[in-house]
Design a binder for these strands. Structure first.
Lengths: 358, 358
DNA sequence: TGGGGGGCTCGAATCGATTCGACCGTACAA
DNA sequence: TTGTACGGTCGAATCGATTCGAGCCCCCCA
């Protein structure tokens, strides 16, 4: 389009605001005012500056310089402690992220993803990134070092489901109480022999029956709390640990629990809807009908893509959690204090639970 | 831990490198050297500086200032033209993102997510963010204005599947040829009556039979190219447009195509594996057996969570695409030119295709 | 006609760190 | 002993924009 000789990539002589100002015959300060819009600049001047910018091919103020001066970068960091691939397989996390994006919308900030593992030798980490605030989603205490550094720098932080340590507002849900609700629902239907499929208890993500060792080495509160809730009603409940929250893992766990007709439970409490969908799949493989032969309770209240059943589940406000975190961030950035929030989940009784077969 | 009187959030008097230097009794330049590590600084001095930093609670160089001076922010922007929620429902995009993260690993950069829609009034947009490079994933030409601004600023860009305009290296796959391969596979099996389920043709995402109007208004190359490939073999192929790439949508489309036994095709080419899974589901609802009564070909080669079949599909290198984009970015940032890449997909013959029923 | 009050514009300081070239002293080689 | 080379340190310039306070000019009103 432009008649310029298409500069080679790399050695572009950058145009600065000062150049534009000179070209327009005004001072740099005036030019700056013209760009930021609101300042007291006459329309004529503003136009002249804009025209000069256009002529010189100026693309607007350099974000780096602007952020240094303003002290704000317009970026909110999100820490996920998993690789991208793993993190985004979980619909709840995605919804939470979506809510977060909504919550910080008023900031007009972007979300900077961190999926590193807290490795202090990582090339870029939380503490070398120009973030205005940080939201930790499901993070373990191993981030403590970085969290501390950010606190020293006065960068607001909020945690969603996970205790990274430090004095950080936490957005949580009633994992234990909610699961208890689900368990009570099963008991009220008459179930006595109930099993549970749990989320991973720690980052290594082993799969198999729950052992005391696994339980005592737990770093993921969510799994622990939901298990507690189940135990509140069924103290000796049999538990099978999944390696992740997925249908696939639910299938595995379901097969393990249901294979033996003699020890087969009449109901399963899955710690996530994906796991529940897998358990249902496993039941169907074995020719069992849900809920006639097996009741299944999930957790999350997401719509599992492709699942035909209306799942009985504990609907948690996953989007709201993200939004609350976002709003807390906004509040903290405006200098106010922010407290955490504890959300409650609701039992949705669908068509996957029924009284046990007589 | 520290005996300081826990400053209130908000009004933290920030410690700067200059303060640290003064406290350590060295100049700011030396202190800087001590932090960046590699400079010629005696061990004694370095230690002294670090100790001073520790005493003062200095959390390391301010990323904003550093990025201004260095001209690099350590951030790579990713544009998705959808909301977070929608973008991450697509496993291919996630894998691509994962590959991208891998590809830029050597930069040690974070990924800054943009999901805005190219709205020029959006508060934060691509051109006000401190990014070193930008990767556009599946973006339409409506980003042109911003793309232009970034080019003026000399910020390297790479596009994956999508033509945002401008002179940008593109990472693509052989959508047309690959689909043709799948179609030829069906023809070689003897199929004559084949239908296809397509991805959306534009952002509005209407659902239903493909009409010439929809086709001529298309902005999504992927859908168009894959349709062409199918037509290369079956010129008059009946097409049903899905509103998104999901099992749910595949179910809908499958029902529409298969409902009427009289017009029922013997095979379906789905433009994604999720759609294929849905079509299979729809077939099973109708009591059809795959592949005996219906052959189904997918596209992507992802593992559909929960799908029991070994899907016949066109396996595309989704992770490699991301990685290639990442590597191109790295190359461009080091001043070299980078060209696009056209990847090829491979036909994986699974258990969802067979000769049509005699 | 003089004084007051806006509306615009400008100069200069500032954000915080990095980096280049200069400088200094010491140790080693000639 | 003188020259040289080098490791270590420092000053000052620089990155590019924002912002505060001062100053200027013009208009309006008394």
């Amino acid at each position: 389009m432009s008649p310029e000789p298409a500069a080679t990539t790399g050695a572009v002589p950058r145009v600065t605001l000062a150049d534009v100002a000179a070209h327009a015959g005004v001072s740099a300060s005036t030019a700056s005012l013209a760009f930021s819009g609101s300042g007291p600049v006459s329309d004529a001047t503003k136009e002249r500056v804009l025209a000069a910018a256009d002529e010189l091919g100026y693309a607007g103020p350099d974000p780096r310089a602007r952020s240094l001066r303003r002290g704000r970068s317009g970026i909110v960091g999100v820490v996920l402690e998993e690789r991208v691939r793993a993190a985004f397989l979980d619909p709840v996390k995605i919804q939470t992220l979506d809510g977060l994006a909504e919550g910080i919308a008023s900031l007009g900030a972007g979300l900077l993803l961190f999926t590193d593992s807290g490795d202090p030798a990582a090339p870029v980490s939380l503490d070398t990134a120009p973030v205005d605030a940080v939201v930790l989603i499901g993070c373990s205490p191993k981030f403590f070092r970085q969290v501390e550094a950010l606190q020293r720098r006065g960068i607001p932080m909020v945690a969603i489901e996970g205790a990274p340590g430090g004095d950080i507002p936490e957005i949580t849900i009633d994992n234990r109480e909610a699961t208890r609700l689900g368990a009570e629902h099963l008991r009220s239907l008459g179930h006595e022999d109930v099993a549970t499929v749990t989320l991973p208890f720690e980052a290594s993500r082993a799969r198999g029956p729950l052992t005391p060792e696994i339980e005592s080495a737990a770093t993921v509160d969510t799994a622990v709390e939901r298990l507690r809730g189940a135990r509140d009603v069924y103290p000796g409940i049999r538990a099978q640990v999944a390696a992740a929250s997925s249908i696939e893992e639910g299938l595995e766990a379901g097969r393990a629990l249901l294979a033996d007709a003699a020890t087969r439970p009449t109901a399963v409490i899955a710690q996530s809807d994906l796991l529940a969908a897998g358990v249902i799949g496993a039941a169907e493989e074995l020719g069992l009908e849900v809920p006639r032969d097996l009741s299944v309770v999930g957790f999350d209240g997401i719509r599992v893509d492709g699942l035909q059943h209306d799942l009985t589940t504990l609907v948690q406000p996953s989007v709201a959690k993200g939004r609350a975190a976002g709003e807390a961030v906004v509040r903290m950035l405006s200098g106010q204090a922010a407290a955490g929030t504890d959300f409650t989940s609701e039992l949705h009784v669908g068509e996957t639970t029924a009284p046990p077969r007589a």
